[in-house]
């Protein structure tokens, strides 16, 4: 019943297959819920409990790593949204000033500790910093379009990342419960085995008829 040395590699691949069922739209696996611990161990090919816990632990580690990195993605997207909103607001201000035919007096950050005064003639053109050392000139209308699109994209990205994170949280919780159940199953099995052996010894019988390998 125990794993033989020759079959270990194949068995590992086999075990991995049973730990998850299906994936979410972004390819994050869904952890298997164990209906019955004993039966589950049988489908793994009757491996010892430690092997199953170890395999789940590995999957757990992977999920946690992914959870961390997605968490960072979400944070950076969430930080980006107010920036875009701020820029959009500024374009609205420029537009308002243009409608009133006024110039805009501003104090802008020249260097870290120096602000300089500037008059901005609002005549309908604005430059947007697109990143990667690129700045493009737009009309106010176009600039608003660009900013609104990136705002929408950023919000969409936060939403999908959130879905992935919730999915991952479900998986880690399920795996935690699975591992605890496997562990408890083993404790119970060993106890039953000990009792059986104790009873067998008392009656002067032979070996205890265990359903596993007593260690």
């Amino acid at each position: 019943m125990a794993a033989t040395d020759t079959g270990t590699m194949e068995q590992n691949v086999d075990i991995q297959k049973h730990l998850s069922v299906g994936k979410n739209p972004r390819g994050i696996p869904t952890a298997t819920f164990i209906e019955d611990v004993g039966a589950f161990l049988q489908t793994l090919g009757g491996v010892p409990v430690e092997t199953a816990i170890g395999a789940f632990n590995e999957l757990y580690g992977k999920c946690k790593t992914l959870e961390n990195s997605l968490g960072r993605v979400k944070l950076s997207m969430k930080a980006k949204i107010p920036e875009i909103e701020k820029t959009l607001e500024l374009v609205h201000v420029l537009e308002g000033k243009q409608a009133e035919g006024e110039a805009l007096t501003t104090h802008y950050n020249l260097a870290d500790t120096i602000y300089a005064k500037a008059e901005v003639a609002c005549h309908g053109r604005v430059c947007l910093w697109l990143g990667a050392n690129v700045m493009l000139e737009y009309s106010y209308e176009e600039a608003k379009g660009v900013l609104e699109t990136s705002l929408r994209n950023a919000k969409e990205k936060v939403k999908t990342t959130n879905e992935d994170l919730e999915h991952l949280k479900n998986q880690t919780t399920t795996i935690e419960v699975n591992m605890a159940r496997l562990f408890n199953y083993d404790v119970k099995r060993r106890k039953a085995l000990r009792q059986e052996e104790g009873a067998a010894d008392k009656t002067g019988g032979g070996k205890g008829r265990g359903n596993g390998n007593p260690k």
Binding site: F33, T173, E176, A180, N184
Partner: peptide, 29 residues
């Protein structure tokens, strides 16, 4: 945020059903 397993001695023997797992997941979420 890790699971805490207790020994079966001090707990009633209740099986975890699929719907229990889903509730636990929801709670975590």
């Amino acid at each position: 945020d890790k699971c805490k397993a207790k020994t079966p001695d001090d707990a009633p023997d209740v099986e975890v059903r699929k719907e229990d797992q889903e509730m636990i997941n929801e709670f975590g979420r």
